[in-house]
Design a protein around this nucleic acid. Structure first.
Length: 121
DNA sequence: ATTATGACGGAAG
DNA sequence: GCTTCCGCCATAA
């Protein structure tokens, strides 16, 4: 019956994180903590970073659009990963000055429709 | 079961 | 603006 069609779909926490990160538009950034909140996983910012680390590269997630809450890249500034992330952000059109990104300028603010129907966790 | 480790966040100095 | 410290939480050993 109808109930059958309304069975709850289960999505694992890590999949929610991947899904949301995949929705960050080019030219915008979000933070580990914010992604966790959007995924319904408050207080699990660190888990977002491990989730990104685990994402198969074949998913081609825009992982570089996730930075820390201070508007900075979370890798060591001398690391290769840091350089890569900075380059990808610049390709997105996001300015990275002195290792800092202006959140007031580039923070992703999903609209109501997106929150309700696209990432409804 | 304990311990150590982070792509974190926030408060404090 | 710094930097340090501490709480947090999912893994790996």
């Amino acid at each position: 019956m109808l109930e059958k069609k309304l069975e709850k779909i289960v999505i694992s926490p890590i999949e929610k994180i991947w899904f949301i990160v995949d929705h960050i538009p080019k030219g915008y950034v979000s933070s580990y903590g914010k992604i966790a909140d959007l995924a319904g996983l408050p207080g699990r910012a660190r888990y977002v970073s491990t989730a990104l680390k685990r994402a198969p590269s074949s998913m081609a997630l825009p992982w570089h659009r996730v930075i820390n809450s201070q508007g900075r890249i979370s890798f060591e500034s001398k690391s290769q990963a840091y350089q890569t992330q900075m380059e990808l952000l610049r390709l997105d059109g996001v300015q990275v000055n002195d290792g800092k990104i202006s959140l007031s300028e580039y923070a992703w603010k999903p609209d109501l429709i997106t929150l309700m129907f696209e990432i409804p966790f």
